[in-house]
Design a protein around this nucleic acid. Sequence first.
DNA 1: CAGTGGTCTAGACCACCTA
DNA 2: AGGTGGTCTAGACCACTGC
Lengths: 243, 243
Amino acid sequence: MNLIQTRTVSNQVDEILLERIRDGTYSPGSRIPSESELSEELGVSRATVRTALAKLAANGMILRKQGNGTFVNARIKEASAQFGNLWDLVQLIEGNGYKSSIQLISIERKPATEKEALVLALEPGDELIHFQRVFRADQRAVILADNAIPSTLLREPLDKVDGGLHIRDIFNNYFHQKIAFAITDIRSTLIGADALKHLGGKAERAILQLDVTFYGMNNLPIAYGVNNFDDSVLRLSLVQTWS
Amino acid sequence: MNLIQTRTVSNQVDEILLERIRDGTYSPGSRIPSESELSEELGVSRATVRTALAKLAANGMILRKQGNGTFVNARIKEASAQFGNLWDLVQLIEGNGYKSSIQLISIERKPATEKEALVLALEPGDELIHFQRVFRADQRAVILADNAIPSTLLREPLDKVDGGLHIRDIFNNYFHQKIAFAITDIRSTLIGADALKHLGGKAERAILQLDVTFYGMNNLPIAYGVNNFDDSVLRLSLVQTWS
DNA sequence: CAGTGGTCTAGACCACCTA
DNA sequence: AGGTGGTCTAGACCACTGC
C-alpha cells in the first residue's frame, strides 16, 4: 500500500494557485503575481514557487513570458487531457464533461497468446489474468479496456480484487508492484466484434486503439492493456507547451 | 529569427549525459553516478545536475529510485516519441528507424471553410494560406499534412517560403510569430480520397488524424493543421513516466 | 530603466532503500 | 548506518520585455 505521499510545500503552493485559477481570483488570460510576490506572500522561497509554477506550465495551465509575467491560459478548458496523465481514463472522461463510471465485465484466467507472450516476455500458454472493463461517460459505454497481468505476480486472493480501480492502484494493492513507466502505441482500427458488442453504434466504423505495455522498476514488462476508445463520443485532446 | 538559445549549463550537462548513454559509457539498465558525484565531476552545483536529470527522467531516458540510484532505461528504444515532442513528425519518422523527407505538394490561398473559421476565430471566407505536404519514410509516403494560416499574418513574400521546414520554423521565419502552445485532437477515421491519393494503399482502411490548433502568446489561434497519419506503416508510440 | 522570468550556487534537512 | 534521491532555503546574476 504505502501511498502516504507527504504533501510537499511546492505541491501545496501548486494547489493554492490552482484553486485561485479555478475560483477566478486569477481570471483566464490575466497576469498572476510575480514569483517574488508569491514567494513573499506565501512565505516560501522563490525556488519553491518556481517548482510549483513549472508544473502548472508543463500542464498548460499557465503561460510564462520572460521579462513580462505569468499568465493564466484561457484555452485550457478546450483540452481533455494534459501530457503526463493521458492514460487516466476517468479523468479523460470527466475532462470531456461527462460523469464517469467503471463497469467490470469479467476477471478471467487465460493462457497467453503468442503476441501477449512476446510483449510480456513469457512463454505462450503461461497463465494471465485478464481484467475486462467498460468505461462509461454519463452511462454511455465509450471505452472497452482489457488488461492482462501474469498470474505469477498476483499477491492477494483474486476474489478480493476491486475491478473498479485505476490500473495503477490494482497493481499497488493486489500485485505489490510499482509501475515505473509505460509505452503506448496509438493505433487506428476498424471496430472489432467484441468492442462493437460493448460500445454499440454502427459497424464498420473506425476507433482508436491504445496498446499499453507497463514496466516495473526493473525494466521488465508487467502488464499489457488494450483499450478500445470510441472517439466519436469522446475527444482525446492534448495540450502541448513549449519551453 | 532570433533563435539564439544560449546553451545553459544544465543543457550542457544534459548533453554530456545523453552522449554517455548513447556511446555506452552508461549502459542500458545500469546505474549512473549519484547526483553528488556528477556535481563534483562536472564542477556544477547539485541543483544544476538535478535540472538536467529531471529532463532526462521526463523523457523516460532514465529511471530514478529514491534511496537507491538513477538507472538508464533499457526500453527507451521501443518508443518512437516522448511526451513533449510528439508533433515533431520528422523525429517521429526517424524514431521508427526510417530516413525522413518532406515533399511540398502545394501552397495555396483559399477562403476559410466554416470549420476553419470557427477554429481560427475568423469569418468564413477570410483568406487562408494552406501548406499541403507529404512526409516520407524511406521514400514511402506516410503522412499527409495540411496546415492553414490566416493570410493576414504573413510577413514575408509567399514565394520565399521554404515548405520543407517544421511548422514552428515556418512561423518563426515568415510569420514572425511564436507558438506558445497547441491543442491536438487525436481521431480515428476511414481514409479519405485525398489522403488515399497521396498515401496509397488499400481503400476503406482506418488511419489516424491529428487535428492541431496552434496558439500564440496572446491566447489567440494562429494556425490549424490536419495530419493524416498512416499508422499501418508508422508506429505512434509514447513513453510515459510517473513521478 | 525597472521589473520579470531564467539560471545557478552552496548548503541544509528529510524520506527512503539496501545492507 | 550510510548513501541515495527529494525538497527547500537565501542569495546572486543574467536575459528579456515594456515603458
